[in-house]
């Protein structure tokens, strides 16, 4: 007498739970379909737009990595090879030597090399660079703006939410397609790298 009643109860429960399971599955599928429309198959990476950057120095302090994955990058094609380099020397420097008291870079990451009178080549020693952007500010204010901050993708761990982007006052960080991971600003006539979507 009790046996069939129990089994019918179990059957009913089974049916109910199958129904709920199916509807949950449909729900998950629905969400997936909804967002899949906006999905891209490729990957994206974080990059900062030098045109928006105001060199506040937060790239050096806000990155989850120390030293930061943002480094100063030298676009040689834009460089004027100046003797008095606004990115290399402190503003009121009088003698143009590589002496410590003249250098703007706090970690000595910019190397100055004599090429020919009156031109000097500047290279960035990236392992030393902390991404503070002091040189970038100097070069942008007084020179051609050939020194630019960029996220170095060999270092960047590509966080889901970049912690520099969260604190960037100029909103210069965005995700860019993996195929064009740099937003270096070239000379005005040259083609600009495509913006992020």
């Amino acid at each position: 007498m009790e046996e069939p009643e129990n089994s019918s109860k179990i059957n009913r429960r089974k049916f109910l739970s199958t129904g709920v399971r199916a509807s949950v599955l449909i729900g998950i599928g629905g969400v997936a379909a909804l967002v899949a429309k906006k999905a891209i198959t490729g990957q994206t990476v974080w990059q900062l737009d030098p045109a928006k950057c105001i060199q506040c120095g937060r790239c050096a302090t806000n990155c989850v990595l120390t030293p930061s994955a943002v480094k100063c990058v030298h676009v040689y094609a834009m460089c004027g090879y100046c003797d008095l380099c606004g990115g290399y020397f402190k503003p009121e420097t009088k003698t143009l030597t590589t002496a410590a008291e003249n250098q703007l870079c706090p970690t000595n990451a910019i190397k100055r090399k004599f090429i020919e009178d009156p031109f000097f080549e500047y290279t960035i020693d990236e392992p030393l660079c902390i991404g503070c952007g002091k040189c970038v500010k100097g070069c942008g204010s007084f020179g051609n703006g050939s020194l630019q901050l960029q996220v170095r993708h060999n270092i960047c761990v590509n966080c889901n939410q970049c912690s520099i982007a969260r604190n960037c006052p100029a909103d210069a960080f965005s995700r860019v397609p993996l195929s064009q991971p740099y937003l270096l600003k070239q000379i005005a006539e040259e083609k600009k790298s495509p913006q992020s979507p």
Binding site: P50, V73, G80, Y81, E116, F119, I187
Partner: peptide
């Protein structure tokens, strides 16, 4: 930003301009 205040010099010593690396 990004203004060409100083034109790119023409080197006489045969200096080759390095590439900007983009890892």
């Amino acid at each position: 930003y990004g203004v060409q205040r100083f034109p790119k010099p023409e080197f006489e010593s045969g200096y080759m301009q390095p590439e900007t690396l983009v890892p």
